[in-house]
Design a protein around this nucleic acid. Sequence first.
RNA 1: AAACAGGUUUGUUUCAUCGCUCUUUAUUUUAAGGGAGGAAAGUCCGGGCAACGCAGGGCAAUUUGCCAUCUGAAAGGAUGGGUAUGUUUUCAGGAAUGAAAACAUAACAGAUAGUGUCACAGAAAACCAGGUAGCCGUCCGCCAACUGGCGAGCGGUCAUAGUGAAAAUGUGAGGUAAGAGCUCACAUGUGCAGUUGGUAACAAUCGCAUAGGACAAACCUCUAAUGUUGUAAGGCCAUGUAAACCCUGAUGGAAGUCGUUCGCCGAAAGGCAAACGAAACAGAACCCGGCUUAUAGAACCUGUUUUUAU
Length: 127
Amino acid sequence: MSFTFTKIERLCSKKAIDDLFAHGKSKTQFPFKLIYKPSEFESPFPVRTMFVVPKKKHKRANKRNDIKRRMREVYRLNKHILYDVLKSNKLDLMFICLSNEELEYAVIEKSMLQLMTDLSKKDFTEI
RNA sequence: AAACAGGUUUGUUUCAUCGCUCUUUAUUUUAAGGGAGGAAAGUCCGGGCAACGCAGGGCAAUUUGCCAUCUGAAAGGAUGGGUAUGUUUUCAGGAAUGAAAACAUAACAGAUAGUGUCACAGAAAACCAGGUAGCCGUCCGCCAACUGGCGAGCGGUCAUAGUGAAAAUGUGAGGUAAGAGCUCACAUGUGCAGUUGGUAACAAUCGCAUAGGACAAACCUCUAAUGUUGUAAGGCCAUGUAAACCCUGAUGGAAGUCGUUCGCCGAAAGGCAAACGAAACAGAACCCGGCUUAUAGAACCUGUUUUUAU
């Protein structure tokens, strides 16, 4: 099992982001919001992901960075939950931080795991 | 010695596991190496680089602002001096006040080019000022009258009072109906010219003119200077190429630092060991040099206050 998280696993295209905001479905589990949408792209990985911490909630760049790094770390260590289910289906994801407090690693882990396991129980062929 | 304030310096180290990014090497995932700060921040100055622009001149806009020396590419910084203001001390004096010294502060050119602002109070807050009370003159009426007193109108006046942070220089004399820089003397301030001292800012002195409130960190005037932009391009062994997207990380252990508590040793200063806790401000966006602001803890320096000892 691989725990890597390289650049091709990240969602960077502006087109794909706009599309995700326009047509994606969302699910909230405070302090995070998950936006997801089935997609098509060429990659050895089944999922493209991005992490967002709005400037409105966190004024200082170093605090935004800290939270994003923790979120990325949680995803990297637990992404197999989704990978095992998806197989040939493709999916775009976006995690948005809603809290304006500095979050500990344990809090982030608990909340994001909840979101990911909920998502993995869905039937992807229907959405 | 403690507390507080200010300044300067510093701004933890290391191991394991799992990762990120770039370079080189390999060619299909091996190996080696690089990977945040003193402020990376604010974007306030100066310079380089790059792109674009560029006949000449003007306007506009922005910036500079006592003097000398040193440093620096420049901006800036350091030291010393001058001026102004304030505080303290000492001296002189009956006092008002004056002189000297020390310390602190200063965006320290111009308020006599022009425009503007000056709350409340006050009659009036600024070109020729102003006329409330008071003072003086004049005229009318009344009292009944000691060449007078009272009231109203008109005029003169800022000496006196009153308002205010500030009322158009101060004292004395002349002058006048009463008064007034209206005139004179002395003083004070300002401007111009000379002389002396000083590299200079400036100081002293003398002559002439003048009496003009404060604010230029209000506009403005003077002075000295300045193509625009940091998208793109270029540059970068930190990355990214476009910003809701941007690597430099996460977890665990060990050591060190500081704090609290308990234990042991010691006459004391202190030393040893354990447990628990704390570690700031803050994340490169073209690159350098400054300025400004933020900063836990530690070390050093300076000042203030309190306590103890002598």
